[in-house]
Write a protein that binds this DNA or RNA. Structure first.
Lengths: 345, 345
DNA sequence: GTTAGCACTCGTTGATATGGAGTGCTAACA
DNA sequence: TGTTAGCACTCCATATCAACGAGTGCTAAC
C-alpha cells in the first residue's frame, strides 16, 4: 500500500487541524473542511489505512486521530509551505544591544521566545580555530598584576595575578614583549603546557613570576573553550499540558536551568550534522537525544558570525508545534543576523 | 484576651505540625502529640480563641486549622529554635570556583538551592561608592583601541573603540596619562558629563578621538551600575502545589526568569531596612512587595564582601517553609562567606 | 469505489451517595 | 471554673453511576 495523492491530502489536513486545535481529529471534520468532497465514511477508510501505515494514531479506540512522529516527519519534510514571517523591527530591537555579544545573544533568544511562545536557546559562537591576538600585563596596584588577553573575535579575558612583590616597570614591559612574541597568533589549542614550558625556560630570572602569569593565561584560554548558552521563555513550556504533569514539566525546566545538559545536547547535534551546517534542522519527539524531551520537538538553525564561526539557535516546544511559523521565523532571523554581522566586520 | 503560655504552646504545635505535613491540623492531633495532656475538646476551645485572635484560620468550616500570616510572623519572631545547620564541605564546594565573582555567586545560589529545596537568588555586591582605579588604552589592531577600565573591587570592564585612523603610539601613551590624571580615584557617580566635558576641553587636538573614548568609559561605568542577580533552583517552585495552579506557577517562574523584576524587589527591600543590614529578614506572604509572591515567603540575608560592600542572598519558598532550617542555613553560609572574603583581602 | 446507516466504544461530564475528619455545642464532671 | 465526653453537624474527598456524544468500524446498498 502506498501513499497516493488523496492520502497525502488527508494526512496533511489531519496534521494541520491537529496543530491548530490540539485535539484528535475525526473523519467528519476532514470531510467537511477539505475540498475533496468525500464523505466521512470514505475518509474513515483512508484514515484506517494511514494508521496502518504508521502516519497517524488513535489515543484510544473510537477517538479521532493524531499525527505520529512519522507523520510529523513527513509533514515537515515534504508538506510544509513556508510562509514569510514578518518580524518587524527585529533590527531595532537587536541593534540597540548589539554592542556586547552576550547581551545580543540573550536578546536574540528573548525575541524569538516572545515571537513564537516557545522556549529558545542560543549558543555563543564557537570559533573553530581561535587565535590569541594580544596579551598585556599591567600593574594595577602594589600587589596585583592585571593580564588582559584578547582573542580573535575581540573576546577579552581579564585575570588578576597576586604577587608578593611587584616587578619593575621595565620588567613588566619586557614580559609583555616576551609573551606576545611567543603567543601572538597562536591557535588557542596550541597553547598547551609544552609551549608554556618553553617560555618558562627562556624567561630565566623571572621564573616564579612568569609561572604565575602563564597559569593565568592558560586559565583564560581554557575559559574561552567552554561554550555558553542563553535561554529564554522557559516558562512557556508550562503552557502546553501535553508536555506532561507538573513532575515532567519540572524535569524539562530543570534541563533548561542546568545549562550543562543543553550544552551536551547541542554538541551532540552539531557532530551529527556535519556538512549541512546551514540548514534548519527539525527534531521530532525521540529524535532529540534527550530523554526529558520525548514529548517535545526542537528546531535548530546554525548562524554564521563570520567565516568559520558558527553558533546555534534552537526552539523547543511541544510536538504539536507550529513548524511553519517557527521555521520561517528562524529563517527571517538568520537573514537579519547575517546582515548585522556582515555589516559590522 | 491574651496569649497565655498554653495558647502559645498550642499555636507552636499547630505551626510545627503544619510545616511538616502541609495539611490542616485538627484538635485531636495536637491533643495526642503534645505533652499538655489536654483533651481534644479543650484544645478545640483554645483553637477557637486562637482563631479569633487571628493567629490561625480554617480553610473551610469543620476543617483543621492552618497558620495565618500573623501566626507565622509570631512563630518566626519568637518561637523558632535555631538549630545549627551543618553544611559540610561548603568551603570545598565554593573555593574551587572562588576565582571569579560571578561563578562564585552562582555557586552560592546553587548550593543553597540544593540544600534547601527552595529557590534562591544572590545579588552581586553593590559598592556604595566605587572609585575608578585605573584606565588603560591599548591599540589592538589597526582600527581598534581597547579600553580597560578597572574599578575598585577589581572589577574590570573592556570596551572596544572603532577608529578611522589609529593615533601614534606616543599619543596613546599621552591619552593614558591624561585619562588617569583626571579620572583615577574618582567615585563612579562623579564621572558625569561635566567631568568628561572638562577632559574634552583640555584635550585639544585629540578632540574627536577622546570623545569616542570617553563615551566608552561612560558606558563602562554605567554598566557597572546596574546590578546583577543570580538565581538557582527555580524549578523547585513547582514542587509546592500550594503555590497555585500551572498558571500561577508560571507567573512566579517568569519573575525569576525576568531578572529585572527581582532587581527591583531587592532594591525595594534594601531601602526599607536601613540600619539593620546584618540581620536576616523574613517576609511572609504579602509582606513581600511583589504580587506574584503572595503565597510565598522569602528569607533574605545581607553579606558583606568588605567594608561597605553589601550583597543580598534570598530564599523563596512556600509560606509553609522550614524557616528554622532556612535561617540557620543562611547563617552558616554567611559565616563561611565572611571568612572566605576576609581571608582573600 | 463511495456512501448511508447503525451498533458499539470510550472518554467526559455531572449528579448522587458515602465516608471520614474535624468542628461547635451541650451537659456532666472534678 | 476549667476540663472532658458525647453527639449532631459540616464539608471535602472519593467513588459510583448514568447520560452524552464524538468518533469508529462494519455492512449493505448505490
Amino acid at each position: 500500500m502506498e501513499l497516493d495523492e488523496r492520502k497525502l491530502k488527508i494526512l496533511q489536513a489531519i496534521i494541520r487541524t491537529y496543530l491548530e486545535t490540539g485535539e484528535p481529529v475525526g473523519s467528519r471534520t476532514i470531510s467537511k473542511y477539505t475540498d475533496l468532497n468525500l464523505s466521512s465514511a470514505t475518509i474513515r477508510n483512508e484514515m484506517s489505512d494511514l494508521e496502518e501505515l504508521g502516519y497517524i494514531l488513535q489515543p484510544y479506540t473510537s477517538a479521532g486521530r493524531i499525527p505520529s512522529d512519522k507523520g510529523y516527519r513527513l509533514y515537515v519534510d515534504t508538506m510544509m509551505q513556508e510562509k514569510v514571517q514578518e518580524m518587524d523591527n527585529i533590527r531595532e530591537q537587536l541593534e540597540e544591544k548589539a554592542g556586547k555579544m552576550e547581551t545580543l545573544l540573550q536578546q536574540v533568544a528573548k525575541l524569538l521566545a516572545v515571537n513564537t511562545n516557545y522556549t529558545t536557546m542560543v549558543t555563543k559562537p564557537k570559533y573553530q580555530h581561535k587565535t590569541l591576538k594580544f596579551i598585556q600585563l599591567t600593574d594595577v596596584d602594589e600587589r596585583q598584576l592585571l593580564a588582559v588577553v584578547v582573542i580573535e573575535g575581540n573576546i577579552v579575558k581579564n585575570k588578576f595575578i597576586q604577587l608578593e612583590k611587584m616587578p619593575e616597570k621595565e620588567t613588566i614591559l619586557k614580559l609583555n614583549i616576551v609573551l606576545n612574541t611567543f603567543l601572538q597568533g597562536l591557535d588557542l589549542t596550541e597553547i598547551n603546557m609544552a609551549v608554556l614550558q618553553k617560555i618558562k625556560e627562556q624567561s630565566g630570572e623571572y621564573g616564579p613570576v612568569i609561572s604565575l602569569i602563564l597559569d593565568a593565561v592558560a586559565e583564560a584560554v581554557a575559559e574561552e573553550d567552554d561554550f555558553e548558552i542563553y535561554t529564554s521563555g522557559t516558562t512557556n513550556l508550562l503552557r502546553y499540558p501535553e508536555l506532561g504533569d507538573r513532575e515532567k514539566a519540572a524535569k524539562l525546566l530543570e534541563t533548561f536551568e542546568e545549562k550543562s545538559q543543553l550544552t551536551e545536547l547541542i554538541q551532540d547535534l552539531s557532530s551529527q550534522e556535519e556538512g549541512k551546517e546551514h540548514g534548519i534542522q527539525v527534531y521530532i519527539g525521540e529524535e532529540a537525544p534527550l530523554s526529558a524531551m520525548q514529548n517535545c520537538s526542537m528546531v535548530t538553525a546554525t548562524y554564521e558570525l563570520e567565516e568559520g564561526v558558527y553558533g546555534k539557535i534552537g526552539i523547543v516546544g511541544p510536538k504539536r508545534m507550529d513548524y511553519e511559523k517557527v521555521v520561517s521565523t528562524l529563517q527571517t532571523l538568520m537573514t537579519e543576523l547575517d546582515s548585522i554581522f556582515k555589516r559590522k566586520s
